[in-house]
Design a protein around this nucleic acid. Sequence first.
DNA 1: CTGTATCCAAACGGATACTG
DNA 2: CAGTATCCGTTTGGATACAG
Lengths: 134, 134
Amino acid sequence: MTNPETRLRPPTVCQEHGAENEFVRGLLGRIGDKWSLMIIGALHEGPLRFSALQHMIGGISQRMLTLNLRQLERDGLITRTVYAEVPPRVEYELTDLGHGLLVPALAMVNWAADNAGRIRKYREVYDAEQAADG
Amino acid sequence: MTNPETRLRPPTVCQEHGAENEFVRGLLGRIGDKWSLMIIGALHEGPLRFSALQHMIGGISQRMLTLNLRQLERDGLITRTVYAEVPPRVEYELTDLGHGLLVPALAMVNWAADNAGRIRKYREVYDAEQAADG
DNA sequence: CTGTATCCAAACGGATACTG
DNA sequence: CAGTATCCGTTTGGATACAG
C-alpha cells in the first residue's frame, strides 16, 4: 500500500483521507471532460436551450449532450428549466457554482485553442521520430 | 484596450472550422483527463522519476501512468530523460509548454478540491430527489 | 423540440506476467 | 527501476428508433 503522507496534495487543500482525494480525482475526470468543458464554456454568456447547445458545440451527439447535462445538473453546476410551451422549451444556465468553474474552464479551453498549433507540431515531430527509429 | 478577462472567444464554441475545432476538443479531452491533470500538477515543483510520480499520485496503475506520460511527452508538455545508471533512472519534467498549462491545470485541480464538499452535497440532494419521485 | 431506450463497437483501465 | 505485453471486464459513445 502506498503511504498517504506522500501523495499529491493540491496546494490549497490538505486532504485527511485518501478517499477524499479519490473523490476529487473523480471530480476532475468529470469537469475536465471535453464535453463538460465545452458546455460550461458555451453557457458563459447566458442560458441556452438544448438544440442551441448541440448546434453551438458541434459534433456532440444527442445522447452525450443529455448525459453530460444531467451530470452537470447533478453536480449543481447548471440549472435545467422547462417551459410549458408548445413546442417545449428547455433552457440550461450556469449556477453560481458553475460560474466559479467558468474561470478555470475557460482558461483550459483558451489554452487548448492557443496552443493547438504548437502541439500539432510536437506530435508530428514525435511521430516522425517514432517512425524513424522508435 | 482589450480586457484580458473578457477575451472570451465565441469562435471556439461556434464551429466554423469543424476540423480545427475537433482537434481542440480532442486536445481538451487529453489535457483535461484526470490523470494528465494530476501528473502536470505533480510535476509543478520539479522533475520526478517514474516511481515517485506513481507513488505521489496514488491510485494510478503502472500501465496508465506509462500511457499518459507518453501522450504528454508526445504533446511536448513533458520531457523524458533516461540516465544510464544501475538501477536505471528516468526523470520526467515539465517543458515550457507544460509550464504554461500548469496555470490553468492547477486552477482546475484547486477548484475541484475547494468545491468537492459542495458538489458532494449537491449530488446527495439530486439523488434523493431522484429516489423520491424521479 | 427534448428527450429516453437499445444495440453495439471502440476505448479505457486494472491485474498480471514478463523484460532489460 | 522502469517499463512492455496480454488478458479481460467496464465504460464510453455513436446510431437508431421511439416517446411526451
